[in-house]
Design a protein around this nucleic acid. Sequence first.
DNA 1: GATGGATATTTGGGATCCCAAATATTCTAA
DNA 2: TTAGAATATTTGGGATCCCAAATATCCATC
Lengths: 260, 260
Amino acid sequence: MSSIDIELANTIRQDIIEGTLEHGARITEAKLCDWHNVSRTPVRLALRRLEQEGMIRKGDGRGYVIEGISVDDIRQAVQVRGHLESLAARLMAQRDNQKDSLDKMNQAVLQMDSLTNMGRLDDAIIREMHASNVEFHSAILDGCGNDYVKFTCGQISHLPMLAAGSMVFDRDSISGNKDIEKSILRLKIGNSQHRIIYEAIVQGDAVRAEGMMREHSNTMIEYIETFETRNTKLTVSDLVSYTVQSSQEMNSETVEQVKQ
Amino acid sequence: MSSIDIELANTIRQDIIEGTLEHGARITEAKLCDWHNVSRTPVRLALRRLEQEGMIRKGDGRGYVIEGISVDDIRQAVQVRGHLESLAARLMAQRDNQKDSLDKMNQAVLQMDSLTNMGRLDDAIIREMHASNVEFHSAILDGCGNDYVKFTCGQISHLPMLAAGSMVFDRDSISGNKDIEKSILRLKIGNSQHRIIYEAIVQGDAVRAEGMMREHSNTMIEYIETFETRNTKLTVSDLVSYTVQSSQEMNSETVEQVKQ
DNA sequence: GATGGATATTTGGGATCCCAAATATTCTAA
DNA sequence: TTAGAATATTTGGGATCCCAAATATCCATC
C-alpha cells in the first residue's frame, strides 16, 4: 500500500472527477485534515501533487481552488495522448530489432481476435480485452525508443480515460444486451487497425504506422462525441462509467519510473 | 519570491543538470537539510516535486536516487515537444478567429525579421530574438484551442532547452565573432519557417502548418547533432551553455496555471 | 449609516518531534 | 573464523507546534 499522501491525492482526485468537489470550490488544508483524519503533512504533499497535475491551483491569497475536469478537457487530453502515440508508432517503425515489443503487440492482436470471435461481452471478456489493449499500446510506448513519449503520456494518465490503453464501452447497450454485435464489430475494427499498425511497423512503414495510429486514436474522440449527441448533459462521471478500469491501473508511482 | 521548496527544487534540479549530483547517487532528506540549511518539510516537498518530474526516483529501500539527464534525454524530450507543437499548429489552422494569437505571431515574425537584418548578434539582440521566438511559439500553444497541449509541454519544460521557445546558439562561433553570417542565416531560415507556419494557419492549411512545424522542430535536434559531431563528449552542461535563458523563464509555477 | 483602522481569526509555510521500518553494527555461539 | 541473532543507527512518513501573512470581525469616529 502506498503512503497516505498518495492515497489522499487519489481520493481527492476522485472527488474532483466525480464532482463531489465542485469546480471553483475553495479547499483548505485544515478541512482536508478534518475530512480524512490525517495531519497536515500528507495533506500538503497531496495538494502539491494535485497542483502539479493541474487538478487544483493556488487561490489568489490563501487556499487552493478546485480546477475540475470537463468533458472537453478529457477530449483535449485524449487528443494529446493520441498524437503522442502516433509519434511512438512512427518512431518504432523507424527502428528495428524491437522483437520483444513486436511480439507483445502481435500477441495482443491475436488475443483480441479470439476474444472478439467469442461473440460475447461479459465482464471477464471485457477485462481480458482491456488487458490486450493495454498490452498493445504499452508495447508501442516501450518499443518506440523515446522514453519521454511514455513519460509524457504518463503525466496525463491520471485523468479518466487516459490511462494506458483505456477502452470505452457503451455501458447502456451492453447492460441491455442489445447492440452487442455492434459493439463487437467496433472492437473488431479497432483490432484490424492494431493489426495494420503492427504490420506497418514490422515493414518499417513509418508513414502508415503514424497515420493508422492517428486514425485509431480518433476513435475514442468520436465515441465521446456519439455519447454527447445522445446525452447533451454528458458529465465526466458518465465518461468514467463508460471506461474500463483495470484492477491494477498504472498509477503515478509506476509512471515516474518509466526511465528505470 | 517563491516558497523555499520551489527554490530548493530548482536548486537541486540545477545541480542534477550540471552533474554536481551525479546519476545514480543516493541522497537523503537529512543531507539536503544540512546542505541547504532548511528543515525537512520543504526538502520533502522539493523531492516529491522532482520525483514527479522524473529527475529523481525512490531507491529500493530508503532514500532517493538521482536519475540524471543525458544529452539523449534532451534530444528525446525535444522530439516530444516538437511533435506536440506540430499538433498545436495543425489545430490552430483548423480553427478560425484566433486574431489575438495570429497578431502576436505576425508581430514576432516581423520583429525577428528586423533583428536578423541588423547583421549583428550581441547579447541584447539575442535576448530580443529569444523573446520573439518565445512569443511566436507561445502564441501557437495559446491559440490552438487545446489547453492540454500547452499543459503537457509545460510538464517537460523544466528540462534544459525545453522551456517555451528556447533557442540554441553556437556559443563558440559567436564569442569568436566568426561565422556570424552563418548563424544569422540560420536564424533567417528559421524565421522563414515561422512565416510559412503563420501563413498556413491564416489560410487554414492544417497539413502545411503541421508539416512545416515538424520540420521547424527538427532544426534543434539537428543542431544538437552538429554539436555532437564536433564534440563527441558533449555534456548536458554544454547544451545548457548553448541555450538562451530568458531572464523571466517560464517556471513550473506559471506552467501550472496554464488552464487559468 | 458609512468608513477606516484596530483587533481577532484563519490559514499556509516551515521547524521540530515521534515512530516504525530499513539498514548498519556488534556480539555471541558454534 | 563465521553465521546469525541482538542491538544501534539511520532514515522517511506523519503529527504537532510556531509564526507570519492574509482575511474577517468589530468598534470608534465622522
